[in-house]
Simulated assay, not measured.
Amino acid sequence: MSVPVHSPHNPASLNFRDAQPGAAAPLFRRVLNQGRHEAATMLRNGEQLVLMIVMPLLGLIALAVTPILDGMGDSRINIATPGILALCALSTAFTGQGIATGFDRRYGVLRFLSTTPLGRTGLIAGKVIAVLAALAIQVAVISTVAAFLGWRPPVVGILLGIPLLVLGAATFTALGLLIAGTVRPEATLAITNLGWILFAALGGIVLPAEKFSTTMAGIVDWLPSGALGTLMRAALLDGDVNIFALVILLAWAVAGSLAAIKWFKWS
């Protein structure tokens, strides 16, 4: 089904308030409109909301009321919250955006939008904005519940944690787009959901590497999930930055981005 370039289904292509008749809106406005449209679509999807909000909340409460994290610090909620915030980035950027992009590619939406004034760069930028908007909502919800349960992070930790979480979201967005742009949508659905489960349970994003065997902990330290989890715990527990984990996460971000740029297929 073809969609007219100026229809509501392509809100980023033209904004009549900001452009002369027959002319495209400024790039910033096009990207912002696309990001707003994609964020609204994500938040209206029930399955996405379960993955983005319900699952992290259940994980937070489970870690706060069970002895899984006992012996790792003075407060279960203080140890649990950084990992759950990192899990939010994984849920939205990797699984959510990967699945959405995979099916957009299948139905020709990506190919169509890439030929509008939005362009390929604007489309990707819009997806990044959508991820960050959804992540901001997740962080607000999780942080509110965690604060109610007694979470009191240091101020310097919050200031460090925000850019680190954004870096994590960028890394997992690149990896999600790489998968969505190279395999069939059904495979994207399976891979990203399986990846979410493995990263969450065994990837060091929720549980610190110390909870695993020595061999497993050595592997976890090199994963993007383990690096993000370590960074968030170091920032929000100690107000510090783990340099090794930061280098690992940056390496995954660069490698994932370059691979997505090279191998992403628009149709």
Rank of each mutant, 00 (worst) to 15 (best):
V3L: 15
P8L: 11
P11R: 11
L14K: 00
N15I: 11
A19V: 12
P21H: 09
P26D: 04
N33Y: 06
G35P: 07
A39V: 06
A39Q: 06
L43I: 09
Q48P: 00
I53P: 00
L58C: 11
G59Q: 05
L60K: 12
L63M: 14
A64S: 15
T66S: 14
P67R: 04
I77F: 02
I77T: 11
N78R: 08
I79M: 14
I79N: 06
A80M: 05
A80L: 10
I84T: 09
I84M: 15
L85Y: 06
L85T: 03
A86H: 13
C88T: 15
C88L: 13
T95G: 03
T95S: 14
G96F: 04
G98N: 07
G102T: 02
R111W: 08
R111E: 15
T115N: 04
T116A: 04
P117A: 05
G122C: 05
G122K: 10
L123N: 06
A125N: 04
K127Y: 05
I129H: 02
A133P: 00
V139W: 10
A140Q: 08
I142A: 10
I142R: 03
S143V: 04
S143N: 07
T144A: 15
V145Q: 05
G150S: 08
P163K: 08
L164C: 11
L165R: 09
V166N: 03
L167D: 05
T173M: 15
T173A: 12
T173Y: 13
G176P: 01
L177G: 03
R184M: 13
P185M: 12
L194P: 00
L194G: 15
G195V: 13
G203I: 07
S213C: 01
I219H: 05
W222T: 03
S225N: 13
L231K: 09
M232I: 11
L237K: 02
V241Y: 07
V247A: 13
G256A: 06
G256F: 08
G256Y: 09
I261C: 00
